[in-house]
Design a protein around this nucleic acid. Structure first.
Lengths: 199, 199
DNA sequence: CTGGAGGAGAACGAATCGAGAACGATCCAC
DNA sequence: GTGGATCGTTCTCGATTCGTTCTCCTCCAG
């Protein structure tokens, strides 16, 4: 969804400020730069930018507005590393990029991981497949997410969120769902695409 | 249906504005550019362009007039239709195209089919997936091929070729391999890539 | 005369934008 | 630590602009 003129103005102003001072402004400071008198009005524009994925959410932190680095090329996404049940994301030494057709991604920021292991094999996600993940901190029940567990390990599983507990469900007869406390599971993104090469 | 002169004029003006300002004008702004005094009249022309598929519909949004971008990339392959076990390839009325990253294809001629049915589900190929097929008439044992059977039906299966017989093996516990005479099976291509969108 | 293209203008609802107040949370100097 | 100032968040309210729809008009070709 395209930005309104005012939203574009706020985004430009944020980029300018980041280039000049190297850190984010406060909402009051932004108001002065834009000639506004109400933080509340500005806050709505910032929320719109967050919804567009152009800005990271600032959960109460001061000067919390951070721009999301966007890829220059339209059809390439960062390939961050490998994801496997039971181990942290194995980051590549240097972030590589990979070409992804628009159909496999969303309009919001995405990145790509390569799957190791067969824990989601029955959902059609095999060892070696590339998965496109939309950067997002919330998911709907039944979506497949990349989740960080207790800050230690990252895994790709189907998620079921209920009051007081979160269940991560593998798609493999040999593995069992695991139940966590909500604060143990941090969603890092939601699966939006997948692809595999056979040659 | 061809455009009327006025509609062509509106379209040209929209393109000009997009090139100059990077975003859509309001109807009032367009009126001034075209020397009109009534938004309502202009709206009829825009509706005509939407009906022609040249412009995306603006459902109440401000500055919602957006040109439809047609991508003519190098990375596009023909999307021929759907393939399912037991039926001929369901050809599309007009050959569509689909963007495919180079990693998912080979240097030889390829085309794309959309899978219907779950006969290859245990090989990670699900209903609705897109598969990239390299146009080829021979295959090695164990490769997954698009094969025409007795000139009647086309199917996606793993192939085992032995002296005097050809076996097509589904990847689904509910289905059994079928043995054919070599002359009954015509290989139309070999699976080289697969991709799936979740949204 | 008839029908289609093109335009004017009014009226309505929705989207956009801003102001301001109130409330907690965060941050910083002491 | 602690308190006060700063800051982010949420809410209501109003004003303006904008897209949409409608009716009515002119012009012109068949």
């Amino acid at each position: 969804m395209p930005l309104t003129p005012r939203q574009q103005q706020v985004l430009d102003c944020l980029r300018q400020h980041a280039a000049d001072f190297g850190r984010a402004p406060t909402l009051d400071g932004l108001c002065r730069l834009l000639g506004l008198r109400s933080r509340g009005s500005l806050h709505k524009h910032v929320q719109a930018l967050i919804a567009e994925g152009l800005v990271e959410p600032l959960n109460g932190r001061h000067r919390g507005i951070h721009l999301v680095t966007q890829s220059t090329d339209e059809n390439t996404l960062p390939l961050l590393g490998k994801i496997a049940a039971g181990r942290p994301i194995e980051a590549l030494p240097q972030p590589d990029t990979i070409e992804i057709p628009p159909r496999l991604r969303t309009s919001r920021p995405c990145y790509v991981l390569q799957v190791t292991g067969d824990s989601m094999a029955e959902a059609g996600i095999l060892d070696g497949d590339f998965v496109v993940i939309e950067r997002r901190e919330t998911a709907r029940n039944g979506e497949i997410v990349a989740a960080l567990i207790r800050g230690e390990e990252t895994t790709l599983k189907r998620i079921i969120q209920e009051p007081g507990q979160v269940t991560l469900v593998p798609a493999n007869r040999g593995l069992l769902p695991v139940v966590y406390a909500p604060e143990e599971v941090a969603i890092q993104g939601v699966l939006v695409g997948q692809m595999r090469a056979y040659h």
